[in-house]
Amino acid sequence: MSLETLDSPRAAAPDLLRFGVPLALALVLVAFSLMAPGFLTLSNIVGVLVNNVALAAIVSIAMTLTVASGGTDLSVGTAVDLGSLAFVSAIIAGQPVWIAAVLGVLAGIGTGLFNALLIAGLSITPFLATLGTLFIGHSLQQLTTDGGNPVYVPTGSIPPALAFIGHGAVFGVPLALWLVAILAAAAWLLLARSRFGREVLAVGTEPQVALYSGLPVRSVLAFIYIASAAIASIAGILISANVNAYVPYSGNAYLLNSIGAAFIGTSLSRTRRANIPGTLLGVLLLGFVSNGLLLIGWNFYWQQVGSGLLIFLALLLAFTGRRDAA
């Protein structure tokens, strides 16, 4: 069995265009450091990375896996929320923080298992399967929180380990950034450097050819959706540790940007496939744009317009010259 055909350039983009997103990011960085004096300081950059980028990056890494397999996971936010709910509930029930964290990830895996059942088991299109999961997850959260009330960890009894997860640092680098680095490295190794990654990309590019080439398409898809939800639930645990609470539906805020980041990232690949470095660039682009617009004094409302327009321009850079669309 050969996977060589996977390298045949279906959408052979001129190599220059692959650098559209790095170019856009560089332009954004240069422009804002000229316009806003505080932009290019270490404290601002670390602030952006911790506050705007870290959580979005984790959710986007999860999204990248499913996009690479030819689908999308609209329920990443649900996995974030259910991870957060399980984590906070366990802490309130008096469990040690590490057990709570394990339970949080298990809640994520449960969400992923449900998706895997629908997608790999019942052959439902990922987009619609995860849309259904999203709706069911919404109801589940309404029912458990009496319509969407946040659940707080009582201020008197916040365990030190929880505060460490939320605000701690190792070797001077915030824990959230370590987690991003570890997850990104693991996902990159899996997608770009393992045999399994080749199988994922084969399933994502030509599912039928993959199926009739004897690839275990169902197991590949099942693993991808479980892994995606598990990674997303880690973001949920970080959010809860940050605010000492579970806030219903807060994970959905990351959904659209993670889709945006993963697809913006595809422009980095010669064959337009989802890849981890591209996704991370996409997340950085989105994060620095909103921070820069804030620093040059745009109000929140115009920031939304501005970042929408800039994403549009980035897409334009990334997609110019594409000729495979019908």
């Binding site: 659209l256 945006g260 939304q304 317009v305 929408g308 897409l315 110019t320």
Partner: peptide, 23 residues
């Protein structure tokens, strides 16, 4: 004309609309 994936193009346009609405 610009051949951006519909999913992405309309996602960006959605953000622009949401921003203009807020303005």
């Amino acid at each position: 004309w610009l051949r951006i994936l519909p999913l992405l193009a309309t996602l960006a346009v959605m953000n622009i609309c949401g921003g203009l609405e807020l303005v």
